[in-house]
Design a protein around this nucleic acid. Structure first.
Lengths: 195, 195
DNA sequence: GTCTATACTCTGATAGAC
DNA sequence: GTCTATCAGAGTATAGAC
C-alpha cells in the first residue's frame, strides 16, 4: 500500500509540470506567473514551492527532461545500418518525435535566453550533442562516398533548421499526414546531401 | 530653421525604438520593463509615453516596420529574369537582408505570441505575403519546367526555415564570410528545387 | 501537502509642475 | 518634452496554521 501522503505528491508534481509546460509554450516563460500555474493546477501559489525551488528551475527541468529524452530516443532509433539508412532514420525520427511534442520544442527553442548562464550552458551542450549526431552521419556518408556535401557543419545546421521548421506549420488535422510530411522532407534532405 | 522643440522628438524617438529593439531581442518583450527602456535612453519612464501610446504598440510598430522594409526590399531586389534568376536573387536577398538585422529577426519570430490578436493578424498577413513571394517563384519555375518540386507550399516553408536558421549561428567574425554562406545555401536550395 | 496571510519589489500607466 | 510623484495591481517567494 502506498502512503497517502506520498501519493498526493506523485500525482500533483506531474500536473504542475504539465501546467507550466503548457503555459510557458502558450505565453512565454516571462509572461507566465506562478499564480497562473497554480490556478491551472487548482492550487494556491505558495503550494507550488513544494514541487520546485523556484520558477527558473521549473523551466530548466522541463527543458533538460526534453533534451534527455530526445538524445536517448535518437540514440536508440538512429544507429543501425550505413550512413544512408541512418540519415533516413534520423529524418524520420526527428519529424515524428517533434510532431507529438509541440510545446516542448517551442520552449526548447524560444526560452533559451530566459535560462541562467549555468543552466543555458547545460542545455546548449545537449543541443550541440544532438547536432553532432547528425553531423557524424554526414561525415560517415562522405567517407563512404555516398554523400556530397561541401561543408558538413553548415549542412547539419541547415537540415535541422529545415526539419524543425515543420513545427511552426504542421497541424494534425491539416492537409498532410505525418507520413506524407516525412516523405516530402526525406526527399529534400536526400537531395541536399547529394545522395 | 527647424524648431527646437520638434528636433528633440525627432532625435529621441529613434533612440527609444532602438533601445526597445535591443532589449526586446536580448531578454524578450515580457521580460523587459518600460523603466529599463527609459534607463537605456536616459529618460524617466513617464517620458516614454510621449513616443508610444503603450508598450504593446512599441513592439507592434517595430515588427511592422521590419516586415514593411523586408517586403519592399524583396520586391525591389527580386523581380528580374526567369525563375532561376529570381530564386538565386531571393536566396541572396534573404541571407544578406537578415544578416544585418539579427535583433529584428529575433523579435519577428519570437514575439508573435505577445501581440494582441489584431496586431498578430496584421503581422501574420505580411509574413504570408513574403512566403507567397517565394512560392510564386517556385510555381513559375515549375511551369517553365526548370524546377522539380512535389509540393511547392512545403518546399517554400522548408527553404525559408533553412535560410532563416542562419541567424541562429552566423557571426560576422566567424569562419565563413557572407558570400561563402550565401554560396553554400544557394547550392543547397538549388538541389532542393531539383534545378 | 495545502492553505491563508503577508513581505517586499516591481509593473504599466497617469497627473501635474516646470 | 521631461521631470517627480503616485496609483492600483501583480510579481516571486516565505512563514506558520492545520
Amino acid at each position: 500500500m502506498a502512503r497517502t501522503q506520498g501519493s498526493h505528491s506523485e500525482i500533483t508534481r506531474p500536473r504542475v509540470r504539465a501546467a507550466a509546460l503548457k503555459l510557458f509554450a502558450e505565453h512565454g516563460y516571462a509572461a507566465v506567473s506562478m499564480r497562473q500555474i497554480a490556478r491551472e493546477v487548482g492550487l494556491q501559489a505558495g503550494a507550488l514551492y513544494n514541487y520546485t525551488p523556484d520558477k527558473q528551475d521549473l523551466l530548466f527541468s522541463l527543458m533538460k527532461a526534453h533534451m534527455d529524452e530526445l538524445l536517448a530516443a535518437c540514440s536508440e532509433r538512429v544507429s543501425q545500418g550505413d550512413a544512408m539508412a541512418r540519415l533516413r532514420a534520423f529524418v524520420d525520427f526527428h519529424i515524428t518525435f517533434h510532431m507529438g511534442r509541440a510545446d516542448e520544442i517551442f520552449i526548447a527553442y524560444m526560452e533559451l535566453r530566459n535560462l541562467t548562464p549555468e543552466n543555458f550552458e547545460t542545455i546548449e551542450a545537449l543541443r550541440r550533442s544532438y547536432e553532432n549526431h547528425l553531423e557524424a552521419i554526414l561525415a560517415a556518408g562522405l567517407s563512404e562516398g555516398i554523400f556530397d556535401v561541401p561543408d558538413s557543419k553548415v549542412t547539419t545546421l541547415a537540415v535541422i533548421a529545415m526539419l524543425t521548421g515543420i513545427t511552426t506549420w504542421y497541424r494534425p488535422d491539416g492537409r498532410l499526414s505525418p507520413e506524407e510530411v516525412s516523405e516530402l522532407y526525406w526527399n529534400m534532405v536526400r537531395k541536399v546531401v547529394g545522395a
